[in-house]
Amino acid sequence: MPIVLDSVTYTYGQGTPFEKQALTGISLTINEGEFIGIIGHTGSGKSTLVQHLNGLLHPTEGQVTVNGINLADKTEEAKQSRHMVGMVFQYPEHQLFEETIAKDIAFGPTNLGLTQEEIEQRVKDAMDFVGLDYKTYADRSPFHLSGGQMRRVAIAGVVAMKPKYLVLDEPSAGLDPAGREEIFAEIMRLHKEQGVTVILVSHNMEDISKMATRLLVIDDGKVLLDGKPIDIFMKYRETLQKAGVDVPPVSQLTAYLNQRGLPVSEEAITVDDVVASIESLKKR
């Protein structure tokens, strides 16, 4: 059940003087079970691209299908397909609106038309999943939580819809390193334990290189590169620079050490990989 984009072009404000083409002929298949990282500088079109994945935007040309169903169709089937793709926007805590945490998380499942028991079960599961104790937090106001907790409630609100695909736009923006790690541990669990296909838009190359199985580099409304993250970071450093994106700090370090004549493995992803590679050099 892949998401398939078939020569998708999107133009903002078509027919007005403000007309601007944001995406140009993108063809792409997102398979179930993948963990896809999407990078690109601000204005590259990556936000426009991900909004096509759950039908928030419909292509001006071409089509997006989930499991063969065109998301732009007006059928009940198409609506259900759109709900298979969950979307967590940047600063998702800004969408909270209910008096209690439980009610807010229940908003999505309620819109799906589920039974009362099923809704309650999903709220419990979702809260459990993001590490908020149901008994303690269910009836509290979401607005008295810390920033990191609010964000987890907002993510729980999307997770409770049990999407098969989950798109996250900069889920760690504004969090400190500890908060960032918590969020990513949850996303990783969602991917591993529940088999959710994750599409992560991020500026943080380190997170992408550690988690993603596939990387898409978007530039000027097109897919510039598509492949394994470490391959792209190793081989296309200059192309990335031209597209206005960085390589992860670890890759920067290994590249620099190689430049200095130290043949450290450039396939290193974590600090431990680098250490191991340096130590093996020294032993020789």
Binding site: D176, A178, V271, D272, V274, V275, I278, K282
Partner: peptide
């Protein structure tokens, strides 16, 4: 709950593994 520059972390781990690396390394250079 804070990060450390990659070079500092690598130097620290090498030192712990018994390699003689100077203290106070922060940058890649």
């Amino acid at each position: 709950g804070l990060d450390v520059p990659v070079a500092a972390e690598v130097a620290d781990k090498l030192r712990k593994d018994g390699y003689a690396i100077a203290e106070g390394i922060v940058t890649d250079k």
